[in-house]
């Protein structure tokens, strides 16, 4: 896994991939949770979403590095 990613000829850290992946995954999970009604068991929905997103991004990032 290269640690650099060419983005319009500018080489950026591959962490940006983790960010994009985390965004997509958390949106997907959000849909699933909404449909399955899991959000009824959640205290603050926004806080849960933020925590989930950070968990996903960090896990993906730890996989790369």
């Amino acid at each position: 896994m290269p640690r650099e990613l060419a983005l319009l000829d500018a080489l950026v850290p591959a962490l940006i991939l983790a960010f994009a992946g985390g965004l997509a995954l958390s949106w997907l999970l959000d849909q699933v949770f909404t449909i399955s009604g899991l959000y009824r068991h959640i205290w603050y929905r926004a806080l849960f979403r933020l925590g989930l997103f950070i968990c996903l991004v960090c896990s993906l990032g730890l996989m790369i590095y």
């Binding site: 959640i42 205290w43 603050y44 806080l47 849960f48 925590g51 989930l52 968990c55 960090c58």
Partner: peptide, 12 residues
């Protein structure tokens, strides 16, 4: 559940 997710996020 919410606090668990937040705690996990902080740790990761």
């Amino acid at each position: 559940i919410t606090l668990l997710i937040v705690g996990l996020a902080v740790l990761l």
